[in-house]
Design a protein around this nucleic acid. Structure first.
Length: 789
DNA sequence: CAGTGAGCGAGCTTCCGCTTGACTT
């Protein structure tokens, strides 16, 4: 038995550290937080200075009892959780659970898993920092209060039934998307004309190449553009001035969680959750350092390793060591940047994992490489017939530097960027040279609204605002989609006409062309629900919904951490006004349904509205209390309460729809809880994605019925009719169905499913009933509790 | 599980931040 027990958060780290520390230490991991606030009564005694009640969640009981056991038989327990607010709190909870005195227990920290870092940490133990622990406790309690007081307000005041939620992070994330959408809707496109002239001249080898010069400024009206081109009729063009400017580009810092998610999205098209899943695999197999980090720092050993790799792959002249500073104020820097464990390690795993590894490898190596050196040439060209001048710009790469390994992907955030930037080489020009003119064009261009967020650009924005942490970006993005506040969608673009005026061969002509605009891929759109909930929360809880709220309270947490503020006083200052808003809203706010009048139904003359119903967005004909009952119809997936027209709404009432007879029985089409379906002979058949319930006919439904019927028969492996027992093929392999209940077949019998006898099946069912599956979650539900007693 | 949408009221839901597997019908 080892004398010392050392506890870290992550099991993968535990293994590495144990190797470094040798036989004196047994290193175990606690898998993150081991206690959390109880859920009943929020786990906070509001009237008693916000005293928290902590419990060990059910899924942590096992690890806690194991740690207790080992701690008892060890001489000394060392706490080596991460060096940030959460890590400090985990250490304190470990003290509480393992009955250690936080004032006496050794607490050590390191930011990198290297032998020198760990050996020096062990030589310099400190104690648990109770101020920091209290700052974490304040953070935890505030988040619980916000979440558990706001969510119930939504349950009461919103007109839909699903389990709505609100929180400090998720509600602001949704707000960003809702407001971006508003901006885009309100955006007024402005057209202008961009001037470009084409010339040709000889390059160094004497070969003629053509190059472009751009006009002095954009012209607002087509008349202005025409006038300008006209004024250039018969002009000659002379090089007036040439400027040569050296410039350089520097590599980006190594990856943090947020920048990795952004680049993997831009370069590889991965969702943030996919990136994190693959990164986790790489981390667990020892390929990369820890993947949830906000630090751009690299350890000294890593820097040496990287320089060695640069020397080997590119040569000494490509090395330029750099230390990057974090621009982010909210960063806690408990870990290193994300980097390969060993630069010499080749990539491995499946294609997707490999691509992510290579991205990390290249970004890491580039971060320690030389600047790229460029030479920019700017030539001013005079027009003889007017006072304007044109500018031709060329860029030449003198030394590639880090660009040899890695180039950061451009972001398409701002409008107009990119178009004028693709600069190539200019031919050799001399001052006074008269250029060979080919043509001049004025092309109509349009201003663009800010782009919709992608998952990754939303993460970037949240990080800038200091909202959320590396471990929560991906889960937050999932939550707001799962709650149906936000949808990730593609949108087809529309064709738009634009004009081009051309001056060529002494003649001015004009033509019209079309381009695709507004096409979107994997962008985040707010749903009607998201819009409605955000509007409600912003109206009644503006302080929490403020983009600066998190930054402000983080400042207060810092004051608690430095001992200048008492945690429960800070909570009280927040809680009093916040709770008053909650009470006030519960008492006075109207129920919200987002109702929007559409006009009158031309047949019945009754009023029609679009609004949020209990089961989602819908349109309604008539009013509830009238003699004739109202009629209802659900909105289609791509429609919204804010934009649906009377005509579109009337269309929706064409369901349910009889499309004819199949095998002498009626076929009726409708939309139900689980989407569009056909009903035939008492059986339901879900329509496929490409089948439109409003237009589909018997020629599509007939084959669908036959196909689903065949699939159903194919699903049955064995059938014991008398006992109502079936062996069926399911998405997770074969399973047994008795009446309406399903039973899992043990792994060892799965291959033998086609040969299972009735007795085999009954044995499996009996065994399953005797050993009910364990419930997951923090505590047993009340229902499960009742059922037991 | 598949024609809901009012209102009543039982019983339910809900947060953020640390960590990984367990396990699905």
């Amino acid at each position: 038995m080892a004398k010392n027990l050392l506890i870290v958060e992550s099991p993968a780290k535990a293994k590495t550290i144990e190797k470094i520390l040798g036989s004196d230490f047994q290193v175990k991991s606690c898998f993150g937080h081991i206690r959390d606030l109880e859920k009943d009564d929020m786990g906070i005694d509001i009237g008693n200075n916000y005293q928290p009640t902590y419990i060990v969640p059910q899924d942590k009981e096992k690890i806690v009892s194991e740690l207790k056991k080992i701690a008892r038989s060890s001489d000394e327990v060392w706490l080596a959780t991460d060096e940030d607010r959460e890590g400090e709190a985990i250490s304190w909870h470990l003290c509480e659970v393992l009955k250690l005195d936080p004032l006496l227990t050794k607490r050590i920290v390191f930011h990198e898993i290297t032998r020198p870092a760990i050996e020096s940490a062990v030589k310099n133990p400190r104690r648990v920092d109770m101020n920091l622990v209290q700052a974490q406790q304040a953070r935890r309690i505030l988040d619980r209060i916000v979440g558990f007081e706001l969510s119930p307000v939504l349950w009461r005041k919103m007109s839909m039934k699903n389990s709505l939620s609100a929180g400090r992070v998720q509600s602001v994330a949704v707000r960003l998307i809702v407001e971006r959408e508003r901006e885009i809707q309100a955006f007024q496109t402005v057209a202008s004309f961009k001037l470009e002239a084409w010339f040709s001249a000889a390059d160094r080898q004497g070969k003629l190449i053509s190059f472009k010069a751009i006009g002095p400024s954009r012209l607002a009206q087509v008349d202005d553009a025409e006038k300008f081109l006209q004024s250039c009729l018969g002009a000659s063009y002379t090089v007036q001035d040439i400027q040569i400017k050296p410039s350089k580009k520097s590599p980006a810092a190594p990856f943090t969680t947020s920048t990795l998610q952004q680049e993997a999205s831009r370069k590889l098209g991965y969702s943030v959750s996919r990136t994190m899943l693959l990164a986790q695999k790489l981390y667990e197999s020892g390929k990369i350092s820890y993947m949830r980090t906000d630090s751009v720092n690299l350890s000294d050993t890593a820097m040496d390793d990287i320089c060695e790799a640069i020397r080997g792959s590119y040569g000494q002249q490509y090395i330029q060591q750099r230390r990057f500073k974090n621009k982010n104020e909210s960063a806690q820097e408990a870990h290193e940047a994300i980097r390969p464990t060993y630069m010499a390690d080749p990539s491995a795993g499946d294609a997707d994992t490999r691509r992510l590894y290579e991205l990390i490898w290249k970004r890491t190596i580039a971060s320690q490489m030389s600047d790229a050196e460029l030479e920019k040439t700017i030539a001013r060209i005079l027009i003889s017939t007017n006072k304007e001048e044109l500018t031709a710009t060329g860029e030449v790469l003198k030394f590639d530097g880090f660009l040899k390994a890695y180039q950061e992907e451009e972001e398409d955030e701002d409008e107009g960027k990119g178009e004028d930037q693709k600069e190539g080489m200019l031919p050799v020009l001399t001052i006074g040279q008269v250029l060979d003119f080919k043509e001049m064009t004025a092309t109509e261009r349009f201003s663009r609204a800010a782009p919709r967020y992608t998952e990754a650009s939303l993460v970037k924005k949240l990080e800038e605002l200091g909202i959320g942490r590396p471990s929560t970006y991906a889960p937050t993005i999932s939550t707001i989609q799962k709650r149906n506040y936000v949808e990730k969608k593609d949108r087809e673009g529309v064709l738009r006409k634009y004009r081009i005026l051309v001056l060529q061969g002494g003649k001015l002509t004009s033509r019209e062309e079309t381009e695709l605009t507004g096409a979107e891929k994997s962008k985040l759109f707010p749903t009607d629900l998201g819009i409605l909930v955000t509007g409600f929360l912003s109206e009644h809880f503006d302080s929490v919904m403020d983009y600066g709220f998190t930054a402000r309270i983080e400042g207060e947490f810092d004051e608690i951490a430095s001992g200048r503020k008492v945690w429960n006083r800070m909570i009280d200052e927040f809680y009093q006004p916040f709770h008053a808003d909650v009470e006030n809203t519960l008492e006075h706010a109207e129920k919200v349904s987002g109702e929007r009048p559409l006009g009158n139904d031309p047949i019945s003359g009754r009023p029609m509205v679009a609004r949020m119903g209990r089961y989602g967005p819908m349109v309604q004909i008539g009013i509830a209390n009238e003699e004739e009952k109202p009629r209802f119809a659900k909105l289609k997936a791509n429609q919204s309460i804010e934009t649906i027209t009377l005509m579109e709404a009337l269309e929706l009432f064409r369901l349910p729809r009889m499309v004819g007879k199949f095998e002498d029985k009626d076929v009726v089409i409708n939309i139900g809880r689980f989407g569009p379906y056909a009903q035939h002979d008492g059986t339901f058949y879900s329509l496929k994605k490409d089948m439109d319930p409003y237009t589909v006919d018997l020629s599509t439904i007939g084959p669908l019925i036959l196909e689903k019927r065949a699939a159903r028969e194919n699903k049955t492996i064995r059938l014991f009719e008398a006992e109502k027992i079936q062996v069926l093929r399911g998405p997770y392999g074969p399973y047994i169905k008795q009446g309406t209940k399903n039973f899992r077949i043990p792994k060892e019998s799965q291959d033998a499913a086609p040969n299972l006898t009735l007795e085999d099946c009954q044995a499996i069912i009996k065994k399953a009933k005797d050993n009910p599956p364990k419930r997951k979650g923090f505590r047993k539900t009340k229902k499960a509790f009742r059922d037991q007693s």
